[in-house]
Design a protein around this nucleic acid. Structure first.
Length: 552
RNA sequence: GCGCCCGUAGCUCAGUUGGAUAGAGUGUUGGUUUCCGAAACCAAAGGUCAGGGGUUCGAUUCCCUUCGGGCGCACCA
């Protein structure tokens, strides 16, 4: 529809300007229904070059607009807007389109089946997942679903930093616990992990437990002198715990990548060699440095420490080189904003490799912190993890749907307040129930109708003439735009907002209009409309990973 | 001190590349059910879009600046 109108406008513009083809015609959906179905500011854009009053230009444009039976009328309004009002049968078309497309309505092929990788969560295996990881999980998973709906071939990936100092720390903490030390014991590791789960790991280790995580099986030896064994067991134990967290949140990854594997395969050493060969490195004070200031970093970074070990950023660069070599020309990393300083570094490292990786690759989506509130007060403690609220606690308390919705419904780059009381209230306060209720209500009506839903696709829709019906159809017609824009902007929260609006229109319509009326034509047309609405609500919820139940 | 993010109704937040009278929910006040699910709807009230400059036909949106909040600034990840 947009294409049609811009085309008509373009033809009209040719009568006024010579190089009309170079014009960017922008159509928008006005906020107010009084401003028609589509609006264009072309006349205002032309006011300056043509040195004419925008309203006068708008009038001329309308005069030269080719007639079209899908458009009811065109008007000049405000400072020079050109407003288009669609004919009724044009508005009806969306209902049929939805009923025909079903689960695919709103989807498109803009990604052309190309590969994209979304890396998210990527928590260190040093503790259970917390709310912050939950936000990353919700946002990353929605993004993945959105990209898939836009025709991309999506790979969801989780990267484990299972090597390095944090893991040493974990190992020492488990050892200390296994030796019976409490966390406030003076000889407990200085930067050790204090959560109760460390004690659980220690006792499981002593009990020679076998852990089966996604792709590995580890049995504890119970031997406290075998540090490597403690390390392997602890990591496996926590990976298993995180698997359970993710399962509870209904998130599935396609690939798990391990930092340790990059070392084992020699890829890290190869990367270092490539960087040295590229001429961007130097030795100083016993360390090997990368001159990242050649690539817009504010200071150079150490690659190899005095003690001979690599800093974390070397395997990070290696890992991203691997992504590139695996054919991902588009990669999105979803991370907490507290890691934002790595972006410049990783990109700089990739540039220094000089292997043809584009400057701004990969893309990043950063989410800000989450604070959890209960009874008007901030919740800071978890029984298991100590200093933070775990994802599993949250899911157990408020449910998977509400947790996902609340964590995905906010713009990633603003801080989020998670109100437990609101999320778990089964009342009109809760947007999740509000949306699901709209879906369930429709299902209930369709059940009572007892007709065959598939026949609704061919129904005559001309009885749909009321304002409520028009507004609802307009809202349904917006969905494909929302799916497209939210993917382009990497902004899944737009889907959550849209769903709330869509549900709101349905509820208003429902309270205003009876569907199962005696007049057959009217009844069927209304049922077709709410059935289309059901599809949109369902498709939208699916993009968020939230269920759309038939009954509640 | 430097860098990134945020500041919109009492509270939680929307506001796609600059557009028309800045919107929801919640809270407050008042109404709606012999009728398909009231977990709903309708109405009222609530604003210096943090403050100040600038860019232009037009700024919540872009630029500068001040204030306030968060997060980074390791030979940790």
């Amino acid at each position: 529809m947009k294409a049609l109108i811009s085309n008509l406008l373009l033809q009209a513009a040719h009568t006024l300007v010579a190089d009309a083809d170079s014009l960017h015609i922008i159509l928008e959906r006005p906020k107010s229904a009084a401003h028609g179905d589509f609006s264009c500011n072309l006349a205002m854009m032309l006011a300056k070059p043509l040195r004419q009053n925008p309203r006068a230009i708008a009038e001329q444009l309308i005069q030269s607009l080719p007639p079209n039976d899908q458009i009811e009328k065109v008007e000049v309004a405000g400072a020079g807007f050109i407003n288009f009002y669609l004919a009724n049968n044009t508005k009806h078309a969306v209902v049929q389109a939805i009923l025909q497309a079903g689960d695919h309505y709103g989807h498109n092929q803009l990604g052309k089946g190309e590969k994209v990788q979304v890396e998210f969560v990527s928590a260190n295996p040093t503790g259970p997942l917390h709310v912050g990881h939950g936000r990353g999980a919700a946002v990353g998973d929605c993004l993945s679903r959105l990209l898939a709906a836009n025709g991309w071939d999506v790979t969801r990936e989780f990267y484990y930093n299972d090597a390095g100092a944090q893991i040493d720390n974990l190992t020492k903490s488990v050892l200390a616990r296994a030796q019976g030390l409490s966390t406030d014991d003076p000889s407990f590791p200085e930067n050790g992990y204090h959560g109760e789960y460390i004690a659980d790991i220690a006792s499981a280790y002593l009990a020679k437990t076998t852990i089966v995580a996604d792709d590995l099986q580890v049995t504890a030896s119970g031997d406290l002198s075998d540090i490597e064994s403690i390390r392997h067991f602890s990591v496996a134990y926590l990976r298993h715990e995180q698997d359970l967290d993710l399962r509870a949140f209904q998130i599935q990854f396609d690939v798990f990548s391990l930092e340790s594997a990059l070392y084992a395969s020699g890829k890290v050493d190869q990367t270092v060699q490539t960087l040295i060969n590229s001429g961007h490195t130097y030795e100083e004070e016993g360390a090997l440095w990368l001159r990242t200031t050649d690539f817009e970093d504010d200071k150079d970074r150490v690659m190899r420490k005095k003690d001979g070990g690599y800093t974390y950023f070397v395997p990070d660069v290696t890992y991203h080189l691997e992504k590139w070599n695996r054919g991902f020309t588009k990669v999105i990393n979803e991370q907490g904003a507290d890691h934002h300083s790595t972006i410049t570094r990783v990109r700089a490292g990739l540039q220094a490799l000089n292997v043809g990786i584009p400057k701004g690759w990969p893309d990043y989506v950063l989410h800000q912190m989450v604070t959890v509130m209960r009874g008007g007060e901030e919740v800071k403690l978890s029984k298991r993890a100590g200093s933070y609220v775990t994802l599993r606690d949250l899911i157990e308390e408020v449910g998977c749907d509400a947790t996902r919705y609340f964590l995905a419904a906010r713009k990633a780059d603003s801080q989020l307040v998670f109100d437990i009381d609101l999320a778990r209230s089964q009342s009109n306060d809760n947007p999740v129930y509000y949306i699901q209720y709209a879906h369930a209500r429709i299902c209930s009506v369709l059940t009572q109708w007892e007709g065959e839903v598939s026949t609704l696709a061919a129904i005559d829709l001309s009885p749909l003439t009321s304002t409520r019906e028009t507004i609802l159809m307009q809202k349904l017609a917006e969905f494909p735009d929302i799916v497209e824009v939210s993917a382009k902007e990497l902004a899944p929260h737009m889907i959550a907002n849209y769903l709330k609006e869509c549900a709101s229109e349905l509820h208003s319509y429902y309270n205003d209009t009876k569907f199962l009326v005696d007049d057959r034509a009217t009844k069927l047309a209304r049922l077709a409309l709410i059935c289309a609405t059901r599809h949109v609500l369902h498709n939208g919820c699916t993009l968020l990973g939230v269920s759309a139940p038939n009954k509640m």
